[in-house]
């Protein structure tokens, strides 16, 4: 077969379109902006009148949040601000820090690890979609269906659906406490409430909420698109990752454990 290569007549856009941000060029220099608007609101006004969380919500949803929405998002951001020093993503940040990696790389490195599907950003979209699909159904029936159609792995944790499962073989009761606390802050949070009921149904199987499930439920209640979930989860976890990475940055390489040869076991 003779192979010819020809350009397709695809119509690419001549300009990039955005609904988010409008920059007004200065009269002196068309590359410089002398005003910026976010969904129509002047950025300098937002600086004066709104909180960071409100503007974050605006950026991702297109409208300013209600007081309850802002409260729910801010509380979730505090709850998940730090995956904790034992979390593999945080440890990646610490290794970057102690290894004297360029500090600008601490976040990209650790957020890449946090992008995984196990307790990471990659599971958030699936968790939001699961909640959206099932939250009008009876949580008990959904739990039965989930248990019938999924098989517990021979070893390790089991997450039969994204956002719910076991942590180190047990129910993560701290996640449940966070979910309860978040629910107490708002009048209504349908996905979060349904998730609590679903977690109750999973209890007999030693399964429950995972932090990713809570994030997904709140994102769903706040109306974020499922595709936004991964990045939002990374964003709200980033402060803890950065803090732990920077904490190690001035310490010698010997500050973190380095397994001895006896602790390094070669398997066939």
């Amino acid at each position: 077969m003779k192979r010819r290569v020809e350009r397709r007549s695809e119509a690419f856009a001549l300009r990039t379109v955005t609904r988010i941000w409008e920059e007004q060029a200065s009269e002196e220099n068309p590359y410089l902006a002398d005003s910026c608007r976010c969904y129509g609101y002047d950025l300098l006004d937002l600086m004066e009148k709104r909180t960071l969380v409100e503007v974050l919500f605006l950026l991702l949803r297109g409208e300013l949040p209600s007081a309850q929405e802002a409260r729910l998002l801010e509380s979730l951001m505090i709850a998940l601000i730090n995956p904790g020093p034992r979390h593999p993503a945080t440890r990646a940040a610490m290794i970057a820090g102690v290894g004297k990696t360029d500090p600008a790389h601490i976040l990209p490195i650790s957020l890449g690890i946090l992008g995984g599907s196990h307790l990471g950003a990659d599971s958030i979209e699936g968790a939001i979609r699961f909640l959206r699909k099932h939250m009008k159904s009876d949580p008990g029936s959904v739990a039965c269906q989930v248990m019938e159609t999924n098989q517990r792995p021979k070893e390790g944790d089991w997450h039969p659906v994204p956002g719910f499962g076991s942590r180190f073989g047990s129910i993560d009761s701290y996640s449940r406490e966070i979910a309860d606390r978040l629910l107490s802050l708002v009048d209504s949070a349908k996905a979060l409430s349904w998730g609590n009921a679903f977690a109750d149904e999973l209890r007999i199987y030693q399964l429950g909420w995972l932090p990713t499930g809570i994030a997904a439920a709140v994102f769903s209640d706040l109306g974020f698109h499922p595709r936004a979930g991964a990045g939002l989860f990374q964003l709200i976890s980033a402060p803890g990752l950065l803090a732990h990475g920077l904490e190690q940055a001035n310490k010698p390489l010997t500050s973190l454990p380095f397994p001895s040869d006896e602790e390094y076991i070669l398997e066939k």
Binding site: T16, V17, E23, A25, Y31, G40, Y41, K49, R50
Partner: peptide, 24 residues
């Protein structure tokens, strides 16, 4: 590929005032 301000096409809401925060 530098961009002048005019090289982006804004299609979002027109300019609007930041509303007062609702009471929680």
């Amino acid at each position: 590929l530098p961009l002048r301000c005019e090289d982006m096409e804004y299609q979002g809401p027109p300019p609007r005032e930041v509303p007062p925060r609702e009471k929680s």
